[in-house]
Amino acid sequence: MSGVRHVDVGGAQPYRIAIGDGLLRDGAALAEHVRGRHVFVVSDAHVAPLYALRVVDALQAARPDLRCIVSCIPAGESAKTLERFGELVRELADFGATRDACVVALGGGVVGDLAGFVAACWMRGIDCVQLPTTLLAMVDSSVGGKTAVDMPQGKNLVGAFHPPRAVFADTATLQTLPDRELRAGLAEVVKYGAIRDAGFLEWLDAHSEDLLARDADALAEAIARSCAHKAEIVARDPFERGERALLNFGHTFAHAIESEQGYGGLNHGEAVAVGMVCAARLSARLGLASDADATHLESLLTRFGLPVAVPAGLSSPALVARMRLDKKAAAGGLRFILWRGTGQAEIIPNVDEQSVAAVL
Results as ranks from 00 to 15, higher is better:
R84Q: 15
F85Y: 15
E181A: 15
L53K: 14
R165G: 07
R322S: 02
A256Q: 01
Q153K: 08
A12V: 15
G313Q: 04
Q60G: 01
V55L: 02
S316Y: 00
R5L: 14
A105S: 14
Y51N: 08
F161T: 11
G3T: 12
R67F: 01
I348S: 10
I233F: 03
A105Y: 10
A198R: 14
G343C: 12
A256R: 01
A166D: 06
A280K: 11
V103R: 05
D293W: 03
F95T: 04
F239Q: 12
A62R: 00
L66T: 00
T134I: 05
V129T: 03
A321C: 02
P238G: 06
E87D: 14
E32H: 01
I257Y: 00
F40S: 03
G20H: 12
G159T: 09
G287E: 08
A231F: 03
L114T: 14
R165A: 12
D210G: 04
G305V: 08
L247Q: 11
A79Q: 09
A271S: 13
R285N: 07
R183V: 07
V34L: 00
A280I: 09
G22Y: 13
I337T: 12
I257N: 02
L186Q: 09
R25N: 06
M276K: 13
G107S: 07
F168K: 08
F85G: 13
A137L: 10
K230W: 03
L204K: 07
L135A: 05
T171Y: 13
V351S: 02
V41R: 03
M323H: 02
L88K: 15
Y51I: 04
G341S: 06
F200N: 06
V277S: 10
A18C: 12
S226H: 06
D205L: 12
C278R: 14
R322A: 03
E298Y: 02
A358I: 02
A172F: 08
T173R: 13
G343L: 10
P164H: 04
I73K: 14
L59D: 00
A312L: 04
G3F: 05
V41M: 04
I257H: 01
L135H: 04
D291E: 15
G22T: 11
V320S: 00
